[in-house]
Design a protein around this nucleic acid. Structure first.
Lengths: 159, 159
DNA sequence: AATAAATCATTGACATTCTCAATTATCCAT
DNA sequence: ATGGATAATTGAGAATGTCAATGATTTATT
């Protein structure tokens, strides 16, 4: 999440390192593509006062799935305390609100306000554009394959 | 990099959130798979006193590509100052050493010592096992496809 | 029904990592 | 030779990650 992302492809000095064994490591490839994508994503989301994290939370809040904070934490691979901070922020901005869980009053269900939904829709468009840019090297079909494989790896779905 | 990674698949409460729109976002899928992989990876590497980061650096140092620190930073998407710290650590442990670049004496070429190579080979095996575990939901062919797509997205290679 | 054990959100402490700006040494172009 | 770039390094401050403790509530056990 540090290096720049401009520059014509194939021209960078460090590209010689593609030949290193680590370039066959899935973890490394995942991390690297995620890193370059994050830069683009955060750049695109900044306009809405969001980052990848807060965008993810807003996306879940905007769904009709009534997620609790605990579920969000698990799903987003974050510590519950980080969710607290993210939601505090979004709630302060009036994009999201907490309601006690109906079956379990310890839990808090997070949902988007009307404004939160509106912001999310715009941010979503920006995020989609950033994703296209990050995956510009792939055809639409390949993007679909990639997502299918990622989803299958995560949840053993059909690709 | 937070949540646990045990548990039978399909049984988790938060899996209902797979239905949320964010689950179609490549950035999110990348982040999530990387997160679960990181846990496994770091767990596997801990035995050798390594983490993903230091493992990557050691891998590059172990190649015959004579990487400079600047190239490592760029390739690993890290700030040059982070590379300094990682190499300080590895050098202190005698796994790696710095030599002035031959064409450019400002640059430092990092290479693995004999011990560094030995440690790397063992760590590599452990990392491979961790990767298999992280990608257990995919067949070998699918793992190949996934890596090909990631590499193409990053460097516009043939899949 | 009463108690005990577990779970959820929250807080706060502390460690790790990120991001930048400044410094020194060296390289490159004029 | 001088001036402007680039490499590594240091250090500071912000952002994130990690963990343990707490109060409220639920679930399980008697």
């Amino acid at each position: 999440m540090t290096t720049e992302v401009d520059e014509a492809p194939g021209t960078r000095a460090a590209d010689k390192l593609v030949a290193a064994s680590i370039s066959r490591d899935a973890g490394f490839l995942l991390a690297k593509l995620h890193a370059t994508g994050s830069i683009l994503n955060n750049r695109a989301l900044a306009e809405f006062g969001l980052k990848e994290r807060s965008y993810s939370v807003l996306a879940l809040a905007n769904s009709e799935l009534e997620p609790t904070q605990r579920e969000m934490a698990e799903f987003l691979s974050l510590d519950p305390s980080q969710i607290v901070a993210l939601i505090d922020e979004l709630e302060k901005r009036g994009l999201v609100l907490r309601a006690p869980g109906r079956q379990d009053r310890r839990a808090k269900i997070v949902s988007a306000t009307a404004e939160g939904s509106a912001v999310f829709r715009q941010a979503e468009a920006a995020a989609r554009a950033a994703e296209s840019e990050a995956l510009a090297g792939l055809s639409d079909a390949e993007v679909g394959e990639l997502k299918g494989l990622l989803r299958k790896a995560l949840w053993s779905e059909r690709p």
